[in-house]
Nucleic acid binder design. Structure first.
Lengths: 206, 206
DNA sequence: GTCTATATTCGGATAGAC
DNA sequence: GTCTATCCGAATATAGAC
């Protein structure tokens, strides 16, 4: 197998693939994530519907590619950012970015953070991208003094809550984006207070 | 129109309707909310598929009935509870109930709190039930000293975040239910602190 | 109110030529 | 890699008898 023509082919193929994914996002935004159809998608990219099977083995496989694409966007989004060295400020900026990222695209938020498509489960390769992202968040949390699992659970709840409210009640806006700093402040003050009084993890059931 | 037989008919009809909704929830839990079909539903309640149109004008109408049913369940769930007179304790118990309610039924959580079904929009009558519920939450917040819109927005983010993480990462469990008290504590301490220093609502963009 | 029968449309997927 | 042709099944919805 020669490499030169194979490279060129691969290039074209990947360009086409990116095109398809871009149109798929656009259609999902227009009609809803679950209402996306391969026929509409083929029309949008100038192909016949069966030709899409050259790129995806099934419709769920397309969702998987979108899932991976979304996390790549997210990784690029935060990877490009230079966060402050002060850990608290870095965490605040990070949260603000995440909430903004959700606000920017409702269906992307749905696919990445909610379980909305029946039967869809990300592949291992796609899920690895999600894990890569969460490890960034963990590092920032640790740097800011977050130690226990309970603290991390509280933090993830805060972030997902801000993102959810933003997307659900002010899509495209900044109403909850703007509250991010305040919420992180509140969270870190609480962590600080609990470490100080050395009373942690004593949450009781009822 | 005589009333006696009409009442009996209505009784039977409403019993059947409740039966249908119950089976619809069960199927949604099994296959996913969006994967619910009228055929399966008819089978489950011992009817032929077209007969469902006696009870619902369309499939979206069925979703609307489920939406209303879900909020009625929620109203009954919190309405039966006697919350403590101490406002902070009441708010904590309320949040715990909400997160538990989400944990108890993933698809109900999806239908009530997420926009997952393409084309579905609750009717005014159904949405009124949602508003009725939110007014209960508002009253509890006010009693606990929550004053500004920003504070209310933070609170709703906290609650929805706890519910979302619970449903997404520990459905049926209590991992985030247990953190509810801690989070409400953290929130009220923050409100208190801000009222004390009289520095509120100065969140800045960037 | 429930049924049978059926219309209609749609959508994912496959076969096989070019 | 793209096409034509087609299959197959599924799903909502309607018509009209009982």
């Amino acid at each position: 197998m020669t490499t030169a023509p194979s490279d060129r082919r691969r290039e074209r193929r990947e360009a086409k693939l990116a095109d398809i994914l871009g149109e798929a996002w656009a259609l999902a935004r227009r009609d809803g994530l679950a209402a996306l159809t391969l026929r509409d998608l083929a029309d949008a990219v100038g192909l016949r519907q069966p030709s899409l099977y050259v790129y995806f083995a099934s419709k769920l496989d397309l969702y998987d590619a979108l899932f991976a694409d979304g996390y790549r966007q997210l990784l690029e989004y935060v990877g490009r950012r230079r966060y402050p060295t002060e850990p608290g400020a870095a965490l605040t900026a990070f949260v603000k970015d995440l909430v903004q990222f959700s606000s920017d695209d409702l269906v992307r938020h749905q696919l990445l953070f909610q379980r909305t498509i029946p039967g869809f489960e990300p592949s291992q390769a796609s899920y690895d991208l999600a894990l890569e992202f969460y490890s960034i968040g963990s590092a920032l949390m640790e740097a800011a003094g977050v130690r226990t699992q309970a603290e991390m659970d509280v933090f993830t709840a805060l972030v997902s809550g801000l993102g959810h409210q933003q997307v659900a009640n002010d899509p495209g806006g900044k109403r909850w984006v703007r509250l991010s700093g305040r919420v992180v402040e509140m969270f870190l003050a609480d962590v600080e207070r609990r470490h100080g009084t050395d009373k942690e993890g004593v949450d009781h059931d009822d």
